[in-house]
């Protein structure tokens, strides 16, 4: 059509473009709570912020999270104005998630995996906000963290961030859907990538396995023939859906929660993308040591 009446075509084209821009901007602002609900599941927010084992209310505060620095408790993130985040604007929420800074300007501990969520698109963060606004507010505060000095001093985190948080870092793949799922949303690397002694992830050994704060081992997911995972795509997909290994063992530890609340809820398309991405990882040789007490 534009070739037939070029002038008009150009004008129409420009108008259409402008209209599309306006529409896109509007769409970008209105977070979609339904998409947000799916994203919250895939991103595993509930695993940390809901105390399932003790029948805790949804997102009203999580179980103790053991780490080498002490015990963290993920707080109430329902929209109760006094005990949760009911007073937060969308911008506050996006900043907390993607920059790890509270509305009061305080840095968060990386036990809140904002280094992964930093890779999330703004739109996804806004959809999450829209979803959390629909979650039933809970009027109860969760117990605070129990950290050893000097980790208990929050301002120390500024120095840590300077060393280990680079928002411009694009070394992790988020361009493919699988990479985006693994790195930005489901944050597989937060457990499967080893950390240095300051708790920062060692990117050169991405997904090559690590020992967690509770003593569990999250194995090497790369296809290294000696130390990695040799499951085929069918086995991997099945495991992420059910938690059952090819030997008929059932994943426990933190992975049981990941399967139940995150990967087990992924759409077939997302699962396929994640599995394909995992199988494409460069092999990294890395054996995870057992805890010294054994």
């Amino acid at each position: 059509m534009p070739q037939v009446i070029p002038n008009q075509g150009r004008v129409v084209g420009r108008i259409t473009l402008a209209a599309a821009t306006v529409l896109a901007a509007a769409a970008a602002h209105a977070g979609d709570p339904e998409r947000g609900a799916y994203l919250a599941a895939v991103a595993g927010c509930a695993s940390c912020h809901t105390d399932f084992e003790h029948g805790g209310r949804h997102y009203a505060g999580g179980p103790p999270l053991l780490s080498d620095f002490g015990t963290f408790r993920a707080p109430n993130i329902t929209f109760d104005p006094d005990h949760g985040i009911g007073k937060w604007s969308e911008d506050d929420f996006v900043q907390a998630l993607k920059q790890g800074v509270s509305p009061a300007g305080q840095p968060y501990y990386p036990a809140f995996p904002y280094l992964s969520y930093a890779l999330m698109t703004d739109q996804d963060a806004r959809d999450l906000y829209a979803y959390f606004r629909t979650v039933e507010p809970v009027r109860e505060s969760s117990p605070g963290h129990d950290l050893a000095f000097p980790f208990s001093v929050r301002t120390g985190l500024w120095a840590w961030r300077l060393l280990y948080f680079d928002p411009a870092d694009d070394s992790l793949d988020t361009a493919t859907r699988g990479g985006y799922l693994a790195n930005a949303l489901a944050h597989c690397g937060e457990c499967h990538t080893p950390r240095n002694r300051f708790g920062a992830l060692r990117r050169t050994k991405a997904m090559a396995g690590a020992r967690l704060g509770d003593g569990d081992v999250a194995g090497n997911l790369t296809p290294d023939p000696e130390t990695g995972l040799d499951w085929d795509a069918v086995d991997l997909r099945f495991f992420l859906q059910t938690g059952l290994t090819p030997d008929g063992d059932a994943a426990g530890g933190a992975m049981a929660l990941v399967v139940e609340h995150s990967t087990g809820k992924m759409t077939p398309e997302d699962l396929d993308a994640l599995v394909a991405w995992l199988q494409d990882l460069p092999p990294v040789r890395n054996t995870v040591k057992k805890p010294p007490s054994d």
Binding site: E53, G215, D216, V217, T242, G243, L244, A250, A251, G252, G253, A254, M255, A256, L257, V259, E260, G264, K290, P291, D294
Partner: peptide, 17 residues
């Protein structure tokens, strides 16, 4: 079933290898 096995393992089984 797999998730239910995992739930018991999560609470009651040590996993260190």
């Amino acid at each position: 079933l797999g998730k239910s096995c995992g739930a018991c393992h999560k609470s009651f089984r040590i996993k260190d290898e």
